[in-house]
Design a protein around this nucleic acid. Structure first.
Lengths: 115, 115
DNA sequence: CCCATATTTTCCTTGACAAGTATATACGTG
DNA sequence: CACGTATATACTTGTCAAGGAAAATATGGG
């Protein structure tokens, strides 16, 4: 995972932008309105996200439609992967009867929305 | 995930410390030697990691043995979870499409995982 | 071409953080 | 209790990024 992605994700405003984009791609003004940011500030944060490979942009007349670039966050996932056993092992200790499906998505699909 | 954890993880030195701790718990001097950091610098970074809940510390005579606190990174994992479908869906879409024709082999696309 | 809309970029100021050096605290031993 | 080892904190300095305001760029319509 590139350094830029980390520094991009530190800022809560940028993470808020990603959360809005998680629902669907959006234009800059849409994001600015939805989050209460000024438009220049939104643009600047989007610039950082774009430079770090976390979002992609598509032009539509004057509007720029931003969307999450899955590759960026997949790299974060890859960084995290070797650590994941640290807390999965604790679950194994409770009851390791799980099938041998190794690293498939084991989360409980509960509403983990934070904040 | 708390804000502190993000700002702690942004620093490459601190992520390097976590990587060393992933192998096993270690004393401060051990980390400093292994990474080529000065001892005060190592202590300061460990302080940040500890304040953000990413590592825990245990005293052993004069030595302080640091270890990864799984809860901290588990929160990062939880933050990442809702995004994970963004790149898993791309694989699922392939499999599901092939699967609409019933009995096709659903495992042949496992090597399309990129990066 | 002039104007309205949508977005980006530039300039500037201010605050936060990292590294280095020096100093302080804690522990074990003779 | 003086000393060596191990770790933590204080202080200073330089760098960098965030935020606001203003200007610049791009698109579409009369």
């Amino acid at each position: 995972m590139r350094e830029a992605a980390w520094s991009a994700l530190v800022d809560p405003h940028r993470r808020a932008i990603l959360e809005m984009l998680r629902e669907r791609p959006r234009a800059v003004g849409d994001l600015a309105d939805g989050l209460g940011f000024s438009q220049p500030m939104t643009s600047k944060h989007l610039r950082v996200l774009r430079d770090s490979g976390l979002v992609s942009v598509r032009a539509e007349a004057q509007r720029r439609i931003y969307a999450i670039d899955p590759d960026g966050l997949a790299e974060l996932d890859a960084w995290l992967a070797p650590y994941r056993r640290l807390w999965n092992d604790r679950l194994d200790a409770l009851g390791r009867h799980l099938d041998t499906d190794s690293d498939s998505d084991t989360d409980t699909d509960t509403d983990t929305k934070e904040k």
